[in-house]
Design a protein around this nucleic acid. Structure first.
Lengths: 203, 203, 203, 203
DNA sequence: AATGAATGAGGGTTCATTCAT
DNA sequence: GATGAATGAACCCTCATTCAT
């Protein structure tokens, strides 16, 4: 990696960390430059404005956060189906309790809130996060359809079931932020069990 | 209401609205004063600092957001049990799609994120929100215990079930913020059905 | 004393104390009102502006600070002359190490400095303090003339001798402010001895 | 001198001048910036806060104000002893009636008073000024000891004599501030004469 | 005799940004 | 590639003051 790219990357990572810890507005260019170990105007060599830097951070964070990454559809079989959903989900949830990934959640939430504010530009954030969330819902729909093919679950209310899975996953990853202690594994397992293997209970 | 109280209340409401729309840091005292129709220093007559004002807004928002308000435990009977949980929850969820209550969610999220940032004072926000969330979990536990008495649900994993209900409610109220269209009523109904009336499936 | 006078007096004393401890500019009307136990606008009932209040404090402080008060010329005799100058001076100096009087010195210094600043109005402070200081010099001249009559000192350089006494007194009362430990009594006695009983050494 | 140092120096000098004329609190950053011919935030490029700027001014002013600078002990001989003390002192006193040095006195007094106020940080000012004052006392003690060696003065009460010289010098330099006209030279000569050549009169 | 409510002016400070070097 | 120097705009906050009550 060239020196230039190294510095760019350092700025990106540092900014992400700072945003996760102090929020977007509180993460000033001074702080960022200071943390990276460069001078403030140097940032402008890589990013033409704070807005552009923040956008880049957002894109960089989002980049590695997709359904396919955590739930590789092709490796699901009739035999491993239920247990693999559980374990794949747990991996996401538990990975997130590591510092690195908890940062991602925090930063995404920051952007989610930031994007929900009154501002023409911010709408993009909301739209992109929406896309990711819908990506998870769509992913679960596809996954559940496999479950239907495997005759492990019935075909009614697939969209609602998928939504429940997506939002449960989302919220379980948010709970640590509030500080609530929860048996994440148990709750996730319980959710999968009742959603996937419910028989004709859906109205 | 005295003139003083009127102004104080106006400041409180305006600030809540602004925080919901622009966030805490972006809601400057100038904006607030401007929106209320007074001069900036006048705010200091009612609140000794921005921090105190923000605290007051937080307390005011939190004040009307408790489990008991939405799920009045005493009015649950064996006959109305399942349907009442569904309708009470829907009232919360649908009420929240009105502008007034959607503001509450937005503001609470703002505080939640604000509280998760590095700062000694902010910890209080997190703790108070945690208390509210735990209030919902505890409330659902009590409610589910009633369900057990009524022999409508079994007694295993009560805490996990309650957690699922609480976080589902939480997340369903957050979805509109992202802009995702969801058949909220269907999802909630589905969740209640699978959680309450699951038979021995919990591990 | 009527209630009105009592409050007025309380404001005066409190302001003097605050000026002594925090300086004129730092002693805000809020602080004063707070310390007195009244509301800010009430001060305006007694003093039409902060400037007028400060002036009143100045006059009140100056009022009890004159040469005659400490050195009653008429009670000086040939027999007690030297010892009485010493003891009268020491009374002023030692009295000043009590809290009450140390306040006076502090406040006067505050006004002295305040008065030396660029401002048309402040000139009055300087002039009045100058008058007091000259009052001490003139007083000592009269006193030393008595000494000449008593043939205890010679008549040369009376003005310079008087000046030395006045400024020594002044400075000795300032030293505690800096925090320098000094055997005040010894220095004052030494000064008197060398000034009053010097024989023909003055040029 | 680099551009940066020039500006820094200009800020320092301007601030000193303003403090001498208007006091520390009245010398606002707006005034300073205005006088220097720069914008307010530019000051922060050189000094991280007003406090730091004021500290720097204080250090800068104090820097050139020591006993040794005015009374070079090594150049005192038995022959020039008395006359040199007089002339060295007069140089300090007369130099101070120039605008430049009168500013120093004014500023030092400002800091002395500022330092005597209730505030944890200000204590340092008092301590440093105390150190300078004690430097003068100690310097005069050493000087008088030389006088003892030269058999020009006796060895009793050296500390008190030194104190008298130091405070006389101090006060003589303060008198112009009040506006009192005084034959400074005569008073200083008289003090030296009576202090140095007093014979066994000390008690 | 006193105050509740409000304000214009100005305080110190931080911000993102620019630009010559 | 990077920065030293500078700035306009905006920040939170405090001030002395006013005025109807």
């Amino acid at each position: 990696m060239s020196k230039s790219e190294t510095t760019r990357q350092k700025i990106l990572e540092t900014t992400a960390w700072l945003i996760g810890h102090y929020g977007i507005e509180r993460s000033s260019l001074s702080m960022i430059a200071n943390s990276v170990g460069i001078q403030k105007p140097s940032i402008y060599y890589y990013f033409s404005s704070k807005e552009e830097l923040v956008d880049a951070v957002f894109a960089w964070i989002l980049e590695g956060y997709s359904f396919e990454q955590y739930f590789p559809i092709n490796s699901y079989t009739k035999e491993n189906f239920v247990e693999k959903i559980i374990s794949d989900g747990l991996q996401l949830l538990i990975e997130e309790s590591t510092d690195t990934q908890m940062l991602v959640v925090q930063v995404l939430n920051e952007f989610l809130l930031y994007g929900s504010r009154e501002s023409s530009h911010n709408k993009e954030y909301r739209l992109k996060i929406k896309a990711v969330q819908e990506g998870f819902i769509d992913g679960f729909i596809v996954l559940l359809q496999k479950g239907v093919e495997f005759r492990l679950t019935d075909s009614k209310g697939l969209r609602e079931k998928a939504s429940i899975l997506a939002l449960t996953l989302d919220n379980l990853s948010n709970y640590p932020m509030i500080g609530i202690q929860l048996d994440v594994a148990a709750v996730w397992r319980q959710t999968i069990t009742s959603v996937v293997s419910n028989e004709g209970k859906f109205i």
